[in-house]
Design a protein around this nucleic acid. Structure first.
Length: 814
DNA sequence: ATAGGGTTAG
């Protein structure tokens, strides 16, 4: 490290008299007079480093290494160079690199000893290579560092890309930077180090390398900034890219257009942030280029903002017409995808026309997007026609393009046709062993005619073209084909096996589709088995796989298994998302027992805790079906469910459930009050309905209601109006009781504070309830004495009389 | 130097 810092800074701050490394006169400088190992005259970059994008690196490169100036020290300056050189070679050959390095470090100064004249460069180079290939990169780099101090050019010793790749593999960012610092093309290599770590998804190392580089760079280097920002994007850590950006701004450095483009690209999924970057860019006077606009179009695309994308496109077209900029094939491809995603095939066709009149020819990607617009819209024939047109225009299809055609067939429910294409492209080498007639009959549904009548001509036509092109199916191809299996589980399983025989492996998507297919026959056991197979084969089921499996359970009315999977996924660290919760709650109609409803409520609570917006719609449906549904067929439920059982409360930590539990555990005679304090209006509604259902069911067992029931809504300070939340809950409860259940609900005096005057003075509430609550005003105005109680309980009273009426009703009023 | 296309759950 100590050496590196010096070397690193020497790269960044060239001595005033230094020459660029590519300069042909460099060999005459005094630094380069050593005869055996060639002086610093780098070979062409392309040869030296296949990774480097350009040979002309003069703008990137700063200077050759400045030799380290050793401190004057007490080391023997009379060392015999020949002896030392010999010792070095012996040390190297004896694989004692440490001792070599130590020996060399003892040498005080190149002015006093010209060791290099005595060293045999090819031997050292060979040893260095061996050190690298045997994996001893630390020693190799250290040795090269020492050698570089003796003016020995180390550029030719080993392929830089080879060492760097090993450093990336071994996650040695600092070693990589140390090594790169020894070479004249250090800055190019710096960028490569960062991007290679990024590609191997090792952002930690990329950032370490970046930090070390930054410390040794005098000025911020835009290439390096762009590299680290892209690495953040590759590793999915867009937040890091933002910190780097802020760091730049804090240094009062203005990023260039490339850095801004990379930033926008990495943050493309955050619409407002990207737009903000674009605005800042303009504020700082950085002129956007076509790429900037292309990325902004992509931002609109991922945000699903077709409107904005269209506006932008029009604006760009205008800029083009006044000669300010030229739209390229990327621009057109992106806008094509915008339309393809929305199935706007007419608009996509218009873009194709625009391209042709602008003289921009469609490439494979543009064709693919165009075809996909038709595929998504279910227009199989047009998609295939365009595919042929593409082939005729001389554009070569690739696997993704083939996949789009296969998917077009699948989205058009022409499953058989998808398989025919697949097999013809594959040259019929691998037919899956399944009964094709069975597939035809069971999978085609209403589209059966399509697969037999008009397709023959078109398909064989395409065949004649596509035979010339290589078709290498990928996992995506097989996933599309899996969908083409419809509900034929055996066919799907055969495809999964086929994947393995062609060297592909099923991914999460493959397994999810298989789960879905298996579930079509309500085969819950099969689904559980697939999840197990998935885990055994090293693929962790993701949210979608679990949610699909849960969907199968729910649709097969196996709520218990659904809950097991729900628990299992969390124990494996896979968090349920909104879809998962909705899938579980969607099963509301399938629930009957109190316990199942409670489990459902627990899920609802989990959902809220996980930060998802409670889905009132599902919840209200749940309650309606559970509570009011029972009212409708009140004659049957006694035998169906046992209400003497104590309900099992699974999550006592949940406030809602806790409250429901407290109420439901009480015997009917004890139910005097329903406490809904701290609950939202939806939750309060739930608790009340749950208690009412309990009462109703107990009534069927012969227990009646002996008193009014109080509903405690919340506490209010004596001199203040009830909070907005309390009033909202109260309003909802009154609405529920009066309008939906036909129960009589009146404000109840509280024992804490006799003055309830403020309670119903909220105009909103008055509007809603006064006409239904004739007793209310009288009650509120009776008391005139202010007390100084700290809290007033906001309560409603449900009258015994109305409860009796409600209990005796056989059919719901709804 | 940066940017574009295909497959999964409600």
């Amino acid at each position: 490290m100590r050496d590196f810092v010096i070397l690193g800074s020497s790269i960044i701050t060239p001595p005033p008299n230094s020459q660029p490394p590519s300069s042909s006169s460099s060999s005459s400088t005094p630094q380069h007079r050593h005869p055996i190992i060639k002086p610093h005259k780098p070979p062409p970059l392309s040869k030296l480093n296949p990774l480097s994008p350009r040979n002309n690196s003069s703008t990137l490169l700063q200077t050759p290494l400045k030799p380290k100036q050793f401190d004057t020290c007490d080391i023997d300056s009379e060392v015999n160079p020949e002896l030392l050189a010999n010792a070095v070679l012996v040390g190297i050959k004896g694989k004692n690199v440490r001792s070599v390095i130590e020996s060399l470090n003892k040498v005080e100064s190149i002015a006093k000893i010209s060791l290099s004249t005595h060293l045999d460069a090819p031997v050292i180079a060979n040893e260095c290579r061996q050190l690298v290939t045997s994996g001893h990169i630390e020693e190799a780099v250290e040795l090269m560092e020492v050698l570089s101090r003796f003016q020995l050019s180390i550029a030719e010793l080993v392929q830089p890309s080879d060492i760097l790749k090993r450093c990336v593999l071994k996650r040695k960012p600092i070693l990589a930077v140390r090594y790169a610092s020894l070479l004249p093309q250090a800055l190019i290599l710096f960028c490569q180090i960062i991007s290679e770590f990024g590609k191997s998804r090792d952002l930690v190392s990329a950032l370490k390398a970046y930090d070390v580089m930054k410390k040794n760079l005098k000025r911020p280097n835009m290439y390096i900034y762009r590299a680290i920002i892209d690495a953040c994007g590759l590793c999915g850590d867009f937040m890091k890219s933002r910190y780097i950006y802020e760091d730049l701004l804090n240094q009062k450095t203005t990023p260039n257009v490339y850095v801004f483009n990379s930033l926008m690209n990495v943050n493309a999924h955050d619409f407002s942030y990207s737009l903000n970057l674009y605005q800042n860019m303009q504020k700082l006077g950085v002129k956007p280029d076509v790429t900037s606009y292309n990325i902004l179009l992509k931002v609109c695309c991922v945000a699903g903002r077709v409107d904005l994308a269209q506006d932008m496109y029009k604006e760009l077209k205008h800029l083009e017409s006044v000669g300010q900029l030229k739209l390229d094939v990327f621009t057109y491809s992106t806008i094509l995808k915008v339309f393809a995603d929305r199935k706007l095939w007419q608009m996509a066709l218009k873009i194709k026309h625009d391209m042709l009149s602008a003289g921009v020819s469609l490439n494979t990607v543009a064709w693919s997007s165009l075809i996909n617009a038709f595929a998504h819209a279910g227009h199989v024939e047009q998609a295939i026609q365009l595919f042929e047109e593409m082939l005729l225009s001389g554009c070569e299809p690739n696997t993704q393009c083939f996949n789009i055609i296969l998917n077009a067939c699948v989205e058009g429910c022409q499953y058989d046709r998808a398989f025919r294409f697949f097999h013809s492209w594959k040259g019929n080498k691998m037919l899956v062993s399944f009964d094709e007639s069975n597939n035809n009959n069971s999978e085609q549904g209403g589209m059966h005619n399509v697969t037999t009548v008009p397709t023959g001509v078109s398909s064989s036509h395409i065949l004649s073209f596509t035979e010339r092109f290589p078709f290498a199916p990928t996992t995506s191809t097989y996933n599309i084909l899996l969908k083409a299996c419809g509900s034929n589980y055996y066919h799907a399983k055969a495809l999964i096996n086929e994947m393995r025989t062609v060297g592909l492996s099923p991914n999460q998507i493959s397994w999810s589709i298989l789960i879905d297919i298996c579930g079509a026959s309500e085969n819950v056991d099969g689904v559980v088995e697939i999840l197990k197979t998935m885990i055994d084969s090293g693929i962790k089921p993701d949210v979608i796989a679990y949610t699909t499996a849960i969907k199968v359970c729910v649709e097969s009315r196996n709520f218990t298994q659904a809950l097991i999977l729900y628990e299992e996924m969390q124990s494996y660290g896979t968090l349920p998302n909104l879809v998962t919760y909705n899938t579980l709650l969607r099963a509301r109609g399938k629930y009957g027992s109190l316990r199942e409803v409670q489990q459902c409520l627990a899920i609802y609570q989990d959902m809220r805790r996980a930060g998802f917006k409670p889905n009132d719609y599902y919840l209200e449906e749940l309650i309606e079906e559970w509570c009011e549904g029972v009212i409708q067929d009140s004659g049957e439920y006694e035998c169906e469910y046992s209400y003497n059982k104590k309900p099992e409360i699974e999550r006592p930590q949940s406030l809602l459930l806790e409250k429901i539990a407290t109420h439901l555990l009480k015997r009917v005679a004890d139910i005097l009050a329903i406490d809904v304090q701290g609950l939202t209006k939806v939750e309060a509604r739930l608790v009340i309905l749950a208690v009412l259902r309990m009462i109703k069911e107990n009534y069927a067992f012969g227990h009646s209601v002996n008193d009014d029931i109080l509903i405690i809504i919340g506490a209010t300070k004596a001199d203040e109006s009830p909070s907005k939340e309390i009033l909202e809950v109260q309003e909802a409860i009154i609405k529920l009781l009066w309008n939906e259940l036909g129960l009589e609900a009146l404000p109840a005096k509280t024992s804490f504070a006799p003055n309830d005057r403020t309670k119903l003075q909220n105009p909103k509430l008055l509007n809603l309830s006064l006409k239904a609550l004739p007793a209310d005003n009288a009650l509120a105005s009776t008391s005139g004495v202010h007390t100084r109680r700290p809290a007033v309980l906001q309560r409603l009273k449900v009258t015994k009389k109305s409860l009796h009426r409600w209990l005796q009703r056989k059919v719901s009023v709804k």
